[in-house]
Nucleic acid binder design. Structure first.
Lengths: 213, 213
DNA sequence: CGGCACCTACCTACTGATAGGTAGTCCACT
DNA sequence: AGTGGACTACCTATCAGTAGGTAGGTGCCG
């Protein structure tokens, strides 16, 4: 993502120039802020300041905060769908796909570009979220569980993974461990914790390769 | 906990009468509300309405919201320390202690009395929390990791657990899985998900008992 | 024993700031 | 000429927090 800095005409402060049109910028900014503090942890005023526009201009693009946050979650789901499609094209090996998924988060957490899954933060406060947002968040987890289930089943079929129970169960175990690892990494402020937890997670599933490799 | 209902003299509404003095009630109420929606998900006004007192009366007990939430987290840590001490007295078997820990959460999630660990919700929004609260939350995770490490080491020593790596690593894996299981249970609105994830988690650690039992 | 000092626990009334949101205007570009 | 995208100005509600006061209890001193 291209990040630039410039000064607004009305206040001397840093304003982030993301690529794309304003609506896309706002979604991106909201995503980043939600990752830091959840739904109630940011305001339209925060976004307005961030991009050097006025608060009502945000309402022009997203009439209500719920609209904006739903857009953020749905954009995330759409991107994941794209990524999955690209993943399946680039590598038919289930273990590689799984590695790419965890590797993506490892990098994001390490460079702090996305220190937590957006849906994970929102899931923590699910009971207090507006229905539309809650539905979108639950949808994300359903998507992810389905994909993981498919990948684990494929890996078993390809002989590169060995599961102790069903792909359904193992997918939930895996998902829980990954999100828990994000939480632990955040709680200990240590990205390496995420990597090490995920590593032992994968080593438990992976079928040892023949020694000659 | 004794829960009673009565009408306030000034407004016809349901008011929760928790046991103990007002300060204790407030801590308990804040704990419940935080579990639902995090730090920014509740207000002094919510608590005031809940217990039929005025907002400034809460400031009398807890000058600032930070004070209140720190008290909530620290009370939680203190209770856990008590529970751990009681646990070690009641059963010297590490596997029983671990079972009691997960069983506690299983019950809480199932009956919705505590559908999520307080510190877990706060950890999700850690970067945006006031320092004092963040410190207390990190402290909780440090406490828990230490206890788990000790229990796992003890279990290995007692021959009832078998770890694939070090107690330190396995404690973090276990902790991540438990918190991830809470998140998954919340995301799918299904307490059974927590139980099943934890079950396979424990079965991986447990040394199979002799068949005669 | 009376009376005063001090305390806890609450109250009313209020503050400045901020929340999300609305109405109406302006302007540049097609 | 219409439209999208921004603006100014404003709204009401709520936020955390403050000022100042009251009722009732406790303890101490004379």
């Amino acid at each position: 993502m291209a990040i630039g800095l410039y000064l607004t005409y009305q206040e001397v402060g840093l304003v982030i120039a993301a690529q794309g049109n304003t609506a896309e910028k706002l979604v991106d900014g909201a995503r980043q802020l939600i990752m830091l503090g959840g739904y109630n942890g940011f305001s339209y005023a925060d976004l307005a300041q961030r991009y050097g526009i006025r608060k009502p201009s945000i309402h022009h693009h997203f009439p209500s905060k719920v609209d904006l946050v739903v857009a953020v979650v749905e954009q995330g789901r759409a991107r994941i769908r794209e990524q999955i499609a690209a993943l399946e094209d680039s590598s038919p090996a289930a273990m590689d796909q799984l590695r790419m998924y965890t590797g993506y988060w490892e990098r994001c957490i390490k460079d702090q570009s996305a220190p937590f899954c957006l849906a994970g933060v929102l899931a923590a406060e699910l009971p207090s979220l507006p229905d539309q947002i809650a539905t979108a968040v639950r949808g994300h987890f359903a998507d992810l569980a389905e994909w993981l289930r498919n990948v684990l089943a494929l890996g078993t079929h390809q002989g590169t993974m060995r599961l102790e129970t069903s792909p359904e169960m193992e997918a939930e175990n895996f998902m829980a461990a990954v999100y828990g690892a994000m939480l632990v990494a955040r709680a200990f402020d240590d990205p390496d914790r995420f990597a090490s937890i995920v590593e032992s997670l994968i080593s438990r599933i992976r079928v040892a390769e023949p020694q000659g490799r």
